[in-house]
């Protein structure tokens, strides 16, 4: 455990990434991120945008502790990340449901792993199942728990994936392009689900996305990454008050902000 900074700063920032380098595949491998700095306050909704292949998924894996950086420090909740962190829930870019389990059993999977829950699971099975079904209902999948993942459409699998990331009530939710493969309508529906979730629960969210409107609509801060090796070029505070309705996407200020972000990323790509 690395105690850095004063106590106040520590409680304010749930995630701090300081001067991190991450290289894949040994000394001559791909340098995915370099000089990466990022801070996420407790309760904040942060969005990360950037050109394809710039190291966004890498950033997510660094925060969850799936990868340990070669240089720099990643800390979550005040302690340095040296192995996977169980207060984090993660939804990956592709839905990774296990085909031999029903959707409900897939959603319950984290509870069989996370230390805090696995001991309680057997005795409190019913309570957990109710919770999973409530989650399914919030994402519009009520009654689909008994179906197998391959009996669900791609969009439905993404929603179930989201439920799985939430079941163990993580303090920090990492979402890696969770709506990538969805149609516009389902996407907007799920934006509202995530928005309400963030409003109603005490959760910090980091969302990676390609969709700048999504980033601006949902987030408190938008972090723009450079082309590979990725680092944060700029952080934008999104001023729109909450709760936000889908309608704000049609006000000029919203579109100006999206336009500015778009240009910034275009510049970042051009530099590469």
């Amino acid at each position: 455990m690395d105690k850095v900074g004063n106590n106040e700063a520590m409680s304010e920032h749930l995630v701090t990434i300081e001067n991190v380098d991450m290289r894949y595949g040994g000394v001559d491998g791909t340098l995915a991120v370099s000089g990466l700095d990022m801070k996420v306050r407790r309760g904040e909704f942060a969005a990360v945008v950037g050109p394809s292949g710039c190291g966004k998924s890498t950033l997510m894996k660094l925060v969850t502790g799936l990868h340990i950086p070669q240089a720099g420090v990643v800390s979550v909740a005040g302690s340095r990340v040296t192995k996977p962190v169980s207060i984090v829930g993660m939804a990956f870019q592709n839905p990774t449901m296990l085909p031999w389990r029903t959707t409900l059993d897939n959603i319950l999977l984290p509870l069989e792993i996370v230390e805090k829950h696995r001991r309680r699971l057997r005795a409190h099975k019913k309570e957990y199942i109710e919770k999973a079904e409530a989650l399914l209902a919030t994402v519009g999948l009520a009654g689909f728990g008994s179906k197998y993942p391959w009996q669900l459409s791609g969009g439905m699998q993404q929603r179930a994936n989201l439920c799985r990331a939430l079941i163990h009530e993580p303090e920090l939710l990492m979402l890696d392009e969770p709506f990538g493969a969805l149609d516009a309508f389902t996407r907007e529906e799920l934006w509202q689900v995530i928005r309400d979730l963030h409003a109603s629960q005490d959760v910090t969210i980091v969302l990676v996305t390609h969709d700048l409107r999504e980033a601006v609509f949902l987030a408190d801060t938008v972090h723009v990454m450079s082309a590979r090796p990725g680092r944060i070029l700029d952080v934008h505070d999104i001023p729109f008050p909450r709760p936000r309705e889908l309608g704000i996407m049609y006000v000029p200020e919203f579109n100006d902000l999206v336009q500015r972000l778009r240009e910034e990323i275009a510049d970042a790509r051009a530099v590469a």
Partner: peptide, 15 residues
């Protein structure tokens, strides 16, 4: 990816 999902939750090799 599937392995990562479990590892991110703190799963051991046995899990």
């Amino acid at each position: 990816e599937t392995e990562d999902v479990l590892r991110a939750l703190g799963a051991k090799k046995m899990d």
